[in-house]
């Protein structure tokens, strides 16, 4: 029986981290530039905190399920 070297949870972590950086980064830009898109509740800056949440979750999974690390 094979053992999967890279856990699916690590892949999940990578994806969430990348998305967190992209969306959170745009949220930071939105906040600094004052340019907000024409959507409802734009003043809540959802990309900033949603992106931050994705990033935090993604980093947790990346570290926890890093290849070669005992889980």
């Amino acid at each position: 029986m094979h053992k999967t070297e890279v856990s699916i949870w690590f892949f999940n972590g990578v994806m969430l981290t990348v998305y967190g950086l992209m969306i959170g980064g745009y949220g930071v830009y939105e906040l600094i530039s004052g340019h907000t898109p024409p959507v409802v509740l734009a003043h809540l800056h959802a990309p900033l905190w949603w992106g931050g949440g994705l990033l935090a979750l993604g980093l947790f999974y990346c570290v926890k399920f890093m290849p070669g690390r005992e889980n």
Partner: peptide, 12 residues
């Protein structure tokens, strides 16, 4: 989705 999500979130 379009109502609440701007660039980035809409793509997601």
């Amino acid at each position: 989705l379009v109502r609440y999500c701007g660039p980035g979130l809409l793509g997601l």
